[in-house]
Write a protein that binds this DNA or RNA. Structure first.
Lengths: 235, 235
DNA sequence: ACGGATTTATAACTTGGTTATGCATACAGG
DNA sequence: CCTGTATGCATAACCAAGTTATAAATCCGT
């Protein structure tokens, strides 16, 4: 009854190869023939397992959200929920910076065959699943926001609404930075993202002093976790 | 065959047709053969005037920024710079809501042939011009931010940095809303965008009361200008 | 009016998604 | 074991769409 994949599951290997080639060679590497050759199969594998390239790309997009969600989950929770929000922001930004091609697809967007049409086009099954996975990633922001409210750092408010504001700000920065609008390199973090986080925290009820201290706490934690070798250090 | 009147400006007509077909039929309408037929020419026109589809699409992307910039310019300046920022936000969001397909291309993004690869891919001449046009649109936000600082509504700060924060928040909301993450309809404006604007204003130094009043002022001005609530209309 | 330069139409070439077809392999029931 | 059926898969073809080669047509400066 349960459909037993007879050999090593080609489906997962196709998605895996797609993600790898995507980051190595850009979206033009997302081709049925290339992927099939990569896993040692013929193009038919794409159609037996996905029905077409569009569905495979949607699966790649979903994988981006899954990866993002996993990264955010690793941030964990400390006693300073506002610092945790800064850490989530750094992590979100880092994920996109490390795999820009993947997240260009994930965020709606790259559409290697022009198949995933609009940003608001959720016609396919896989497309809806990807959006669902996006909300899963969003949950981490909601949780931290909720804790910030409970801790009295943020004004009492609907945590979903407040988190949606934070998500918008964060997502907007990351997207614009990835589009090159804030110049190259890491400077956007200190010049825009962190000040943006402080602005948001203060606007949501925190004091300037505590928000700045939480930003510093998160920065220190970030350095400790990633190691400061190779980082552009500037005060 | 009747002698053809010399086509005056095929280049502009191609871009115009591309934008129109894009909103009517989605990105799959952005095809050399379709566009050529639309303006009564052969596919060669695409190559003599643009060199290829990629450059034409970049030109469409640039047109989106130009349109956005024009819309934002129409907002004008009142005595309440914070209200002006809310008006700019509503306008920015409205532009994207009315032509989602166009701005999906403009924002980096739709890539009908998989040609415009990454969000950060600025390899082509037209691509750089499009980014430049984006900064032009950004200027309006900078100007309003500067006036808010001068008026004492925002704390003294670098107006570019503060404006970049506002742009990030606005762009993020618009992008996520267009992706369907905030549900359908207009509810995202009152539930997220306006509260986000208030959060940002307060975080940048304004008081809650004045920020809320500016939001109301902008809302009233918006209603006066658009008549009915901004439903998806067409020109 | 002439001659080079530019634009254009036609048609072929190329790439890449898709599909038709047949074989092979897994598994169920004898 | 043998056999029948279903499913995965390779081959090869099909088709759509970007691109290019070529030659005719048109434009413009002199």
């Amino acid at each position: 009854m349960s459909p037993k994949p007879r050999a090593t599951d080609v489906k997962a290997r196709l998605v895996e190869a797609a993600i790898r080639l995507l980051d190595e060679s850009g979206p033009e590497a997302l081709q049925a023939r290339k992927l099939a050759a990569e896993v040692g199969a013929s193009t038919m594998a794409v159609y037996t397992h996905f029905g077409g390239m569009a569905a495979l790309v949607d699966e790649v997009a979903r994988a981006g959200y899954v990866r993002l969600s996993e990264w955010l989950a690793e941030v964990g929770e400390t006693g300073d929920p506002v610092a945790d929000i800064f850490s989530l922001a750094r992590t979100y930004r880092q994920a996109v910076a490390e795999q820009p091609q993947l997240f260009a697809v994930t965020f709606g967007q790259s559409a290697p065959g022009g198949k995933r049409a609009t940003l608001s086009d959720l016609t396919t099954e896989e497309g809806r699943e990807a959006a669902q996975e996006g909300l899963e990633a969003f949950t981490h922001i909601v949780r931290a926001t909720e804790r910030a409210i409970e801790a009295g750092r943020f004004r009492a408010a609907d945590e979903y609404q407040a988190a949606a504001q934070l998500w918008s700000a964060l997502h907007g920065f990351v997207t614009l930075e990835a589009s090159g609008h804030f110049g190259p390199g890491e400077q956007g973090i200190d010049h825009i993202l962190i000040p943006l986080g402080i602005t948001m925290a203060v606007g949501l009820g925190d004091t300037v002093e505590r928000a700045e201290r939480s930003a510093e706490t998160a920065k220190a934690a970030w350095r400790a976790r990633t190691g400061n070798a190779g980082q552009v250090g500037n005060d």
